[in-house]
Nucleic acid binder design. Structure first.
Length: 616
RNA sequence: GGUCCCGUAGCUCAACUGGAUAGAGCAGCUCACUUCUAAUGAGCAGGUUUCAGGUUCGAGUCCUGACGGGAUCACCA
């Protein structure tokens, strides 16, 4: 039994024996003791005062006496107001350390036989990945790792949005203005090349639209359609999408191309395959740089027709209803949502139809009983509707659908807007943080004795740690402000700060090995010091932090934990000598403590997709 | 307008899910490297947790209402 459960049981017994009261185990509030007080864990006794008819300090005192006598691990206690601070014995802590310090997988749960799917990244194939995708990818990857660490079997997937009008815009622009340019001929990464033509299309379309606004047709249109008080600028801004659909020459061509694609016309399909191929190659490079991979990719070109048989099922069960024009709807007004279309009047799928079908397909493919979608919070409503619909359809997995919803990433200057060229490109950003790590290391003028290749590996690890930690440390649901300058910071509350604690330990361990220390001497260590106890306490909570992060799908909990552990270690390292400790026992104890801290830091950062350098 | 999310130090973020005197980093000002690597540590300064009520032994956290920011309300995806 876990010590905390033992204590809780002890508290239950105390209440029962002292006051003849019954309390549930999860009603026992046990918190880590704040560091300005003496103790390891604190019991809050206020909830029992009524039952026991005692004043809080008296009650705390009585329970304290009982626990000290009846729970062997509890060595001492003290009472401050209604708070009972409990101290565990050094023996308990030593055993905890010796049992776990050499275990690299400390904190990870045992396999629970559950299968979970995590969907993340899921880009469009018409432009390269940007900062927004990076937040998505990092959250998805670390959530998957965390769920795995909590004992689940995890399948990582993405659904690639590889069809539709957007990719046709890139294709058309390339056809018209591309002069058969390829990634090879231009030396441009595939996804960037395709993105370039997407931008080119928008540019040409904008020009066309501007010309139309000045033309007789455009002027006449404006005069006959404008609302009162509406300026030309306001009107045309609003009309843009409609212009694309109804008046535009380029728009017409793009739409024709989409029709050809849907009809399977060979030339169009080949062009589509070629350009998407370029994009995938580019994406792969970016994913590799970020250190992520997937178990299976779903393509919307394969899934966009799915879901219709589920519509039939739902119609039979009266989950859905049909309107006069043949369109199919679900009425969610009793769940405080709206009526929502699930099949168009012409019988074709909409977004949610595909998602219904895809969820079902995934269940068939993998038998997963839980699915996590990492998607920005602008789609909160969509997923509410999707999950509710699956429930009403009675799908077996419907109770375990989760939307890991995260806030958008803003720049200090405001929102990212592709049209205004304020998008931060993923590849540029990665290159920038690595370069910053290099510059910094060169200025410091250290680690010169290793090869250039090894140094490059270290710079890459440090740069990426800075970037990843900076993004993951923020609670996912919060909208975050991304300052590129701060993201490359290597000091303070950063990834490299955590790495540095690990590196310091490695350095100590390397030196210690030369002396060949007898680790068994640590058992004779007399008195564990305050800072050592604090570190042990922090290490002790690691398993529950993993569990919490998994339950709440919140990788930021791991990031903040790692930072605090590293901080504790840096301070300990500063105040205590390890290799020149006052006794052999102390030295051995501290080496094992350091070893365990290193293991946990490495394990924790690994859950965030951050690698440890051996030196820096 | 309806619904949902957010609001904590100048800035970027925490706060163990209702617990003790709200903590870190950055930026600013001091101090500490011939020492197990200073990508570190110590100190100063910075707060009416947007505001007003309520619930209770106790509220940044829960409830109500304002105010501010964002998202969403397509036979788009």
């Amino acid at each position: 039994m876990n010590i905390l459960e033992t204590v809780k049981k002890g508290v239950q017994d105390a209440i029962k024996n002292l006051y003849q009261g019954e309390i549930a185990a999860d009603a026992v509030v046990l918190n880590p003791t704040r560091k300005e007080f003496e103790g390891d864990y604190t019991l809050v006794v206020f909830p029992y005062t009524k039952m026991a008819k005692k004043a809080p300090p008296v009650l705390a005192e009585e329970v304290g006496v009982y626990l000290k006598e009846n729970v062997s691990e509890i060595e001492d206690y003290n009472v401050v107001k209604g708070f009972l601070n409990l101290s565990f014995s050094d023996g308990f802590w030593k055993e905890f350390l010796f049992q776990n310090s050499g275990n690299p997988s400390f904190g990870k749960g045992t396999a629970n036989g559950k299968k979970v799917m995590v969907e993340f990244s899921s880009p469009n194939t018409n432009k390269p990945l940007h900062l927004g995708h990076i937040r998505n990818i990092l959250l998805g990857w670390s959530s998957a790792k965390i769920l795995e660490a909590a004992g689940n079997e995890v399948v990582k997937v993405q659904i690639i949005n590889d069809r539709g009008i957007a990719i046709c815009k890139s294709m058309l622009a390339w056809q018209k203005f591309g002069n058969a340019e390829t990634p090879e001929s231009s030396g441009t990464k595939g996804d960037h090349l395709v993105g370039k033509y997407y931008v080119e299309f928008e540019k040409q379309f904008k020009k066309e639209y501007a010309n139309w606004q000045q033309s007789e047709e455009g002027i006449e249109h404006f005069m006959s359609h404008k609302k009162r008080e509406q300026t030309e600028e306001e009107y045309f801004k609003k009309y843009k999408q409609q212009y694309f659909n109804e008046n535009s020459v380029l728009g017409k061509e793009a739409k024709e191309m989409l029709l050809k694609w849907e009809a399977g016309e060979e030339e169009t399909v080949n062009l589509w395959k070629k350009m998407n191929g370029w994009v995938y190659e580019g994406f792969d490079t970016t994913y590799k740089k970020l250190g992520v991979e997937f178990d299976k990719l779903y393509y919307e070109s394969n899934t966009y027709l799915l879901g219709k048989e589920m519509i039939d099922k739902g119609l039979n069960n009266k989950v859905f209803f049909k309107k006069e024009d043949g369109s199919v709807w679900i009425d969610l007004t009793d769940a405080k949502m709206d009526e929502k279309i699930v099949l168009r009047s012409d019988g074709t799928s909409v977004y949610i139809t595909q998602d219904l079908g895809t969820a079902n397909l995934r269940y068939q493919d993998f038998g997963v009983e839980k699915m996590v979608y990492v998607v920005a919070d602008e789609q909160n409503y969509h997923f509410k509707v999707l999950f509710e619909t699956l429930k009403r359809l009675g799908e077996p997995y419907a109770q375990n659908m989760h939307h890991l919803s995260y806030g958008m990433v803003d720049l200090p200057t405001g929102k990212m807007k592709s049209r205004e060229g304020t998008v931060v490109d993923a590849d540029d950003l990665v290159a920038e943080v690595i370069e910053e790590a290099r510059t910094n290391a060169v200025e410091r003028g250290e680690i010169v004795e290793i090869s250039q290749e090894e140094r490059d590996t270290i710079y890459r690890k440090i740069g990426l740690a800075a970037l990843k930690f900076f993004i993951i440390k923020v609670n996912p649901k919060k909208r975050m402000i991304f300052d590129p300058k701060e993201s490359v910071d290597l000091q303070g509350q950063t990834g490299p700060y955590v790495q540095n604690a690990f590196v310091r330990i490695q350095s100590v361990l390397r030196k210690a090995q030369l002396d060949s220390v007898d680790l068994s001497l640590a058992g004779g260590y007399e008195k564990i010091e305050t800072q050592e106890k604090e570190l042990l306490n922090q290490l002790f909570t690691y398993p529950s932090i993993i569990q919490q992060a998994a339950d709440e799908l919140d990788p930021s909990a791991i990031a903040n934990y790692c930072y605090n552990l590293a901080k504790g270690y840096h301070k300990f390292y500063h105040d205590h000598s390890i290799l020149k400790a006052e006794s052999e026992a102390a030295k051995s104890f501290r080496l094992q403590l350091s070893k365990m801290v290193a293991n946990v830091l490495e394990s924790g950062l690994d859950l965030l997709g951050i690698e440890m350098p051996e030196r820096m």
